[in-house]
């Protein structure tokens, strides 16, 4: 059976920058793959390459066996860009019908798909409203519906929840979960780790154009931290003294808090005793199991990227 997506040794350069540097990736049938990475890591170039909008310098992209950008690949692929790529002076129905026609639909098929997409996006009662008059959440949902108007089997979702309120975000999650129940394969890019944890079967982390980690959420945490836990502590006292002591005990001082990695929760007592002997007062202390965000920061670092 053909894979929804197979990317092999993909390279794309812009001048001297290798935006995508030998990426190999696959998406299985019915799978939701989370694609995470800091700004400028190469996510957008990779997504646009899959959508056929960027021509790679080398490597191969196959969508259900068809080369990216080919007619068959376009028919199988839905793209939901981060921007609200809609016609503001057209109604919801007119927008969906336009994108349906661009994808070769017509007649009853078009009418049926428009009605289904409106229902999926909970916009049936706003079908005749101009897009420019919709709320931010409605526009986001319509933006998603426009990418699905031709019923693709593989969907690229580029940060579909940017700028929406928690209610709309939750609604969008339900829409995506409905798609997953229908067997649609998804590539989902986001900066919200909890979204990836909730929605994605598998997560790939990309940085500097390379895939630096790939696996389920549990696999990624285990791979990065094993069975270790994080201790977060706040001390009162001279910052220089705190920083020196934290570094001397294998921790990191970040934004006024000290972070330590311990093998077992019982090790926390010894750590606090050592702090007291060094003359540091503990304001508060917390034990945290590592999560996807911990993995992400561990792998990509904490420096700003933009």
């Amino acid at each position: 059976m053909l894979l929804p997506l197979h990317v092999e040794a993909l390279v794309k350069r812009f001048g001297r920058t290798r935006a995508v540097d030998g990426v190999t990736l696959e998406v299985r049938n019915g799978e939701c793959l989370g694609l995470l990475g800091p700004n400028g890591a190469g996510k957008s170039t990779l997504i646009r390459s899959i959508a056929g909008r960027v021509i790679p310098d080398s490597g191969r992209i196959a969508i259900f066996g068809a080369p990216a950008g080919s007619g068959a690949a376009r028919d199988s692929l839905g793209w939901i860009p981060q921007e609200l790529a809609l016609y503001p002076r057209l109604t919801c129905r007119e927008n969906l019908a336009s994108f349906g026609r661009y994808n070769g639909l017509g007649g009853e098929d078009l009418d049926r798909n428009v009605a289904q997409c409106l229902k999926w996006a909970t916009l049936s009662d706003r079908a005749g409203d101009l897009v420019k008059n919709l709320s931010g959440g409605m526009k986001r949902r319509l933006n998603m519906a426009a990418g699905l108007i031709h019923r693709p089997k593989l969907v690229l979702m580029d940060e579909p929840t940017v700028g929406v309120d928690p209610q709309s975000r939750n609604h969008i999650f339900e829409m995506i979960e409905q798609l997953r129940r229908e067997g649609v394969s998804i590539i989902y890019t986001t900066h919200y780790m909890e979204e990836a944890e909730r929605l994605c079967d598998r997560i790939a982390i990309i940085d500097h154009g390379k895939i630096i980690a790939d696996g389920t959420n549990t696999e990624l945490v285990r791979s990065a931290f094993g069975s270790r836990s994080e201790v977060i502590a706040h001390f009162t006292g001279a910052p220089e003294l705190i920083a020196t002591w934290v570094a001397g005990h294998g921790g990191q001082a970040v934004d006024g808090e000290a972070q330590f990695s311990i093998d077992h929760p019982s090790a926390i007592g010894a750590l606090l005793d050592a702090a007291a002997q060094a003359g540091l007062d503990v304001a508060d202390v917390a034990l945290r199991k590592p999560n996807l965000e911990s993995v992400f920061l561990q792998l990509t670092g904490r420096e700003l990227r933009d």
Binding site: G71, W79, P81, Q82, E83, A85, N103, A146, G147
Partner: peptide, 13 residues
């Protein structure tokens, strides 16, 4: 500017 062109060109157009 709005990204609509990208979406249109990713279709059969």
């Amino acid at each position: 500017e709005s990204g609509t062109l990208d979406r249109v060109l990713s279709s059969r157009v």
